[in-house]
Write a protein that binds this DNA or RNA. Structure first.
Length: 909
RNA sequence: GCAGGGGUAGCGAAGCGGUCAAACGCGUAAGGCUAAGGACCUUAUGGCUCAGGCCUUCGAGGGUUCAAAUCCCUCCUCCUGCACCA
């Protein structure tokens, strides 16, 4: 008995692969091509099982397509752009314990760690090599000749310059101002990962409305400019420090000290800054810019200098805080006139008062009440006549319209604040900064979006539900800042101060795969826009000179492009994938737009979610070492859809067993010499169904379904064949060979081994080895009758259990021929009606069989049966039944009324 | 807040109008096989049933239908993404 030893087999086939290079395809016009890609990956640490999940899915598809006779290219590139590499290097330099330990866990030497701490690129190159090795060991069939590294390979940088110049020519690069969360100490944008706290917080716009008093401007901060018509007074807090800021245009603003520090980031120039005692203003009347009405200035302890400007406009009829404090402090009577309502909400008169009652008048209660009122009034409020010409306008609309009007009057400006508190890793509190002259890719372009949608509508998307997610992501798409300072990257060709940022330099790089093996060998200076215009767009300029490689590159691109299948995890869907689509439709002709995208979920191993930060990642190499690459690759079949895929190491066990069974059978194949019989027809018919299911499943990236039929169901069938006395060598060989091949995409090494033993040939996917299915060999009646046999065995088992006897003889009585005729007549009738009385009328028979068959409406017979086949099937299974129950079994024709087609009469004695 | 997707047996997960007490896998139990075993095989795994049967189940409630886990409505509940950051 051969023992399955993954190590021996895998080393052998890796050696052969190394020699014959089946994964390094060249142009072959006799074959259709398939280009499969997975996104670039940051080489910052060893690969874990989560990676294997995605890459195995791509690889299974690659192998499947090779076996079907396609010329398959599966390249891979790496990514060094942006912060991760530099960040990690910096952390090592600072001797950050966690980072150093992570390196040591990955068996990086002290010497190398030191090197990495000085040179982020060295770190990237080190892990690039290790990734290549790990992927190869795991049997991922990548063409490494085409490897390149973003922000490192100089030839690729030239390609990237071409991409950006092309976008610019098409008017898809725009310059503008953009708010970001900013660390004032480190002078850098604060991404989610740079934050100590405040992940997910983003810049939030608010309005300042300029009230005036004594020639000073009081810039009141508000989220609800439409309530300007209901302002009764202003609040300042005499316990907060205020400043007088002299602006460029001469205006003198009174704001909290805190705001004075932030205003510089809002592109406002403050010429002079002085302390200011607000007691000078409290009690005076300011002027409301919208109607010139006098609004008194009151002192209020609840005004927070950290929030907006430290100047608050009071709208008592629509803001619980204002309402509550005015009443509490008896300031109400000092108002020149009664506060007015400007918003009406149906069935919610006195909404403010009611909400305070409901949520309470403590700080928290008032906060809740505020939220409630804001939300209610925004969703269903209408402005009333106090809002002048905005009467009967919805609050939602009025907010924009009033803003526009006030902006026109130069009394409103828009500013930003973080939506919540953000702290930088360095400890500084994050602010919002308006970044000037930032370069954007103009993703919000109407025409571009229309093209994207048209692509998403027609491309293959697996699973299907992702399509709507793409559509919504596209419609929400805004312009994207495409360049930044710091980190690694390629300079923008026309503004070298800026580096192209990582989500923008990795959108159409798959086109570079097609030419990588040529371009990587060239002098980067030979690669210019003219050349790329020709290679990728077919536009040749009369006055330009082209290097001799130009024709070959053009041919490579024309042959291999577009991307036929792009595989990735869910996290990249709304960003990378969307930008991938956008840039393709922007730059390439429609025939070079991507054909299919397949998205998978996360992987959980032994119930734990993989996460680098939690330190519970399982390295690929460890697992491959321990279980062998083939069994571990089962991971790729963990789920069909977008759900998190649950994977347990236990799963490898059943793989071992099944492989050993196949190896055993292969070895003793020559012992099977009997003629073929009905069970052979049965096996072939079922096998055919399995091929069909598996082929469709693989085609649609449904690998869980694929493996269920090609591994589990097929092994079950093999067992059934042997159980039912199948002994024909040819059938068995065909079954094993088919099973082996259906499973090759999942378990490439061991299936190759068994195939070579059986067939004398190596698959290596270089010839068309995928089994075909043949509709004509489907034998429905035989399959049905074998189901009858299986059901009958269950029945016998049941009966024996109930009778509590040890049977000496079992007699299986097959119904007589005319019963079968009646049965099949009913089956045909059922296809047209489910009305039992109608069926009864049509078959016109008094037989008790009709009563029995029609007894249960929801279980009417639906598959045709045949008396001879039923008899033969039972004859075939007779020995098996006898073996199970250890007694005599007789198959006979029966007159007994209990003998129904599909349900033989049983006599157990 | 906005958008998308779920809730099925101990667990993971199929099914998406009728062969559904519900595939498949894992786990568990009993028996078997081995010198031994991480292994493997058989059977069982909602409840009740001593002749192949019946009853109750697919988040909760209501409805449509001869027939609903599957279609419709309401409610409860869980998850994921939201951009300058890979």
């Amino acid at each position: 008995m051969p023992k399955y030893d993954p190590k021996v087999i895998e080393e052998k086939w890796q050696r052969i692969t190394e020699e014959r290079k089946p994964y390094e395809p060249d142009i072959d016009t006799s074959k259709d091509k398939v280009l499969i890609t997975v996104p670039v990956i940051y080489p910052t640490g060893t690969l874990h099982l989560g990676h294997l999940y995605t890459w195995t899915r791509a690889d299974m598809y690659a192998r499947f397509m090779r076996m079907r006779g396609f010329n398959v290219l599966f390249p891979q590139a790496f990514h060094m752009t942006g912060g991760p590499m530099v960040g990690l290097s910096l952390r090592l330099k600072n001797g950050e314990e966690k980072a150093v330990r992570m390196m040591k866990d990955q068996k990086v030497s002290d010497e190398d760690i030191k090197k990495f701490s000085e040179d982020p690129v060295a770190l990237g190159l080190y892990f690039s090599d290790s990734y290549k090795n790990e992927f190869t060991k795991a049997g991922i069939s990548i063409d490494w000749r085409r490897l390149f590294i973003l922000s490192y390979t100089p030839q690729y940088s030239k390609f990237l310059e071409w991409q950006f110049n092309t976008l610019k020519k098409k008017g898809l690069i725009v310059q503008g101002t953009h708010p970001v969360i900013w660390c004032p100490k480190e002078e850098t944008p604060l991404g989610d990962h740079d934050r100590l706290s405040g992940e997910g917080e983003s810049p939030e716009a608010f309005s300042i409305i300029k009230f005036t008093v004594d020639g000073y401007v009081l810039p009141a901060g508000t989220l609800r400019p439409e309530t300007i018509f209901g302002v009764s007074n202003l609040w300042l807090n005499s316990e907060v420090k205020y400043k007088k800021l002299t602006m460029e245009d001469g205006e003198e603003w009174i704001t909290s000290e805190q705001f004075s520090k932030k205003i510089g980031y809002m592109l406002k120039n403050v010429v002079k800054e002085e302390s200011f005692d607000v007691h000078r203003l409290i009690g005076k009347n300011a002027k409301n810019p919208v109607d010139n009405q006098a609004v008194p200035i009151f002192d209020a302890e609840f005004v927070d200098g950290d929030v907006m400007t430290g100047v608050v406009m009071s709208v008592p009829m629509h803001a619980p805080f204002d309402y509550y404090y005015l009443h509490k402090s008896n300031l109400l009577e000092k108002l020149p006139k009664k506060p007015v309502r400007v918003i009406e909400v149906e069935n919610e008169d006195g909404i403010v008062e009611a909400s305070i009652k409901k949520f309470g008048d403590g700080k928290e209660g008032l906060d809740e009440a505020t939220k409630y009122v804001y939300k209610k009034e925004l969703s269903s409020g209408l402005m009333n006549s106090n809002a002048g010409k905005f009467a009967n306008v919805s609050v939602d609309m009025a907010r924009t319209d009033v803003s526009t009007m006030l902006e026109g009057m130069k009394v409103l400006e828009t500013m930003y604040e973080p939506s919540g508190e953000v702290t930088c890793r360095c400890g500084a509190k994050g602010v919002v900064k308006l970044l000037e002259n930032q370069w954007f890719i103009h993703y919000s372009d109407r025409e571009l979006k229309d093209k994207m949608i048209s692509l998403v509508e027609k491309m293959n998307v697996f699973p299907e539900e992702v399509r709507t997610q793409f559509a919504t992501a596209i419609s929400n798409l805004e312009d994207k800042a495409a360049a930044r300072h710091g980190g690694l990257g390629t300079p923008l060709p026309w503004d070298k101060e800026w580096l192209i940022e990582p989500l923008s330099d990795s959108t159409i790089y798959m086109a570079y795969y097609t030419i990588a093996s040529i371009a990587n060998k060239m002098d980067a200076n030979e690669l210019n826009d003219d050349l790329f215009d020709y290679v990728f767009l077919g536009e040749k300029r009369a006055d330009a000179s082209y290097p001799e490689e130009a024709e070959d590159m053009r041919k490579e691109f024309q042959y291999w492009y577009p991307v036929d299948m792009r595989v990735t995890a869910r996290e990249l869907l709304t960003n990378h994938m969307v930008f991938f689509i956008a840039n393709h439709v922007a730059i390439f002709t429609p025939d070079n737009w991507p054909k299919s995208i397949s998205i998978n979920g996360w992987l959980t191993v032994n119930k734990q979610k993989m996460s680098k930060s939690k330190g519970n990642t399982y390295g690929i190499s460890d697992f491959v070492e321990r279980y062998g690459a083939d069994p571990v690759r089962l991971i790729g079949t963990a789920s069909d859809g977008l759900d998190d895929a649950e994977w347990s190491t236990n799963n490898t066990n059943s793989v071992y067993q099944k492989i050993e069974t196949l190896m055993d059978l292969t070895e003793i194949l020559s012992d099977f010499r009997s003629e073929s019989g009905i069970v052979d027809d049965y096996a072939k018919s079922k096998l055919n169904g399995i091929i069909k299911t598996a082929t469709e499943a693989y085609s649609n990236m449904r690998f869980r379904t694929a493996v269920q039929s090609s591994l589990f169901e097929s092994m079950q069938l093999l067992k059934e064949y042997l159980d039912f006395g199948g002994k024909n060598g040819d059938t068995l060989r065909e079954m094993i060979l088919t099973i082996i091949r259906l499973n090759h995409p999942v378990f490439p090494f061991v299936t190759e081994e068994i195939n070579s033993i059986l067939d004398g040939k190596d698959m290596l996917e270089t010839y068309r080895s995928w089994p075909d299915f043949d509709e004509s060999s489907a034998r429905d009646v035989i399959e049905s009758e074998f189901s009858v046999v299986k059901n009958t065995i269950d029945d016998i088992r049941n009966l024996i259990k109930m009778l509590k006897i040890k049977p000496k003889e079992i007699r299986v009585g097959i119904a007589k021929k005319d019963s079968f005729e009646l049965y099949n007549k009913i089956v045909s009738e059922v296809k047209t009606t489910r009305d039992v009385n109608e069926i009864r009328k049509r078959v016109r028979s008094n037989s008790k069989i009709v009563d029995k068959l029609l007894k249960n409406k929801s279980r009417l017979p639906e598959n045709k049966l045949d008396s001879d086949t039923e008899m033969n099937a039972f004859e075939q299974a007779k020995e098996y039944i006898a073996r199970i129950f250890e007694c005599e079994v007789r198959i006979e024709s029966s007159e007994d009324e209990k003998a129904i087609p599909g349900k033989p009469a049983l006599k157990i004695a």
